[in-house]
Amino acid sequence: MKRHLRVAAYAVCVRDDEMLLARWVAGDGTRRWTLPGGGMDHGEEPSRTMVREVEEETGYTAEPTALLGIDSIRLSGRPRRFERPGDLHGIRIVYEARITGGELRHETGGSTDLAAWHPLSAVPGLPRVELVDIALDLWRERPPTGRSRLGAPLDPALPPNG
């Protein structure tokens, strides 16, 4: 089975008790809210990835204010991004960021179709990806290890590279 590694950077933007989210469109047309962010380009610095992706998906200029943590996800079988079976390992770098400019707009021709501010109290009721909950946990708890209690459990039975 082919192994794939994807490194991505995301932003938690909260202001006036509202969170900025982008609506992700899956290959099957399913739409769920996610953090603005996405995959790193080769040679790109992670915080620059986050800034670029926030602008692409929301129209806003963002500035990282803190590194909240790193999440890891593993999908085996037929990950949605690949035509053939594979083992996808995603590393998700989560920053706290503040909006410094720009105007809210929606992405066209990308993986998201809508960007919006949502009251924090309404986020649990939204159709969303698990990363939103993990990121909110990191933002609220600020764990010293940068690891959310909601992330995948560490499996001591797995070999270091497997």
Rank of each mutant, 00 (worst) to 15 (best):
L5D: 15
D71K: 00
L114N: 07
G77Q: 06
W24T: 02
T34I: 10
D133V: 09
D137Q: 11
P127A: 11
P159F: 11
R128P: 01
S111F: 14
G43W: 04
R32T: 10
L68V: 08
A26K: 14
R31G: 05
W139D: 11
A135M: 03
R92M: 13
Y60Q: 06
M50C: 02
G29F: 11
D16W: 00
A97Q: 02
P64S: 07
T65Y: 09
G77I: 06
G90R: 14
V94K: 03
V12I: 11
G110W: 12
R80V: 11
G125W: 08
C13S: 08
E18M: 02
I73K: 09
A22F: 01
S121V: 15
G39K: 11
G59N: 06
G38F: 04
V7E: 15
L104N: 03
A62T: 12
P119F: 05
Y95L: 08
E18R: 13
S111A: 14
R140D: 14
E103V: 07
G101R: 07
P119C: 09
P79D: 08
P119L: 13
R23M: 04
E130P: 02
E107Q: 14
E141S: 14
D87Q: 13
R32D: 11
R78K: 13
W24P: 00
D28E: 09
G27T: 11
S148V: 03
G29Y: 08
R48C: 00
S76K: 12
G43R: 01
D71C: 04
L114D: 11
A66R: 14
L35I: 12
V129I: 12
P160I: 11
D16E: 14
T61I: 13
V94C: 06
G102C: 12
G69P: 07
S72G: 03
E63C: 06
A97M: 12
R147N: 04
P156A: 09
R31I: 05
L131N: 05
G162H: 15
P79Q: 10
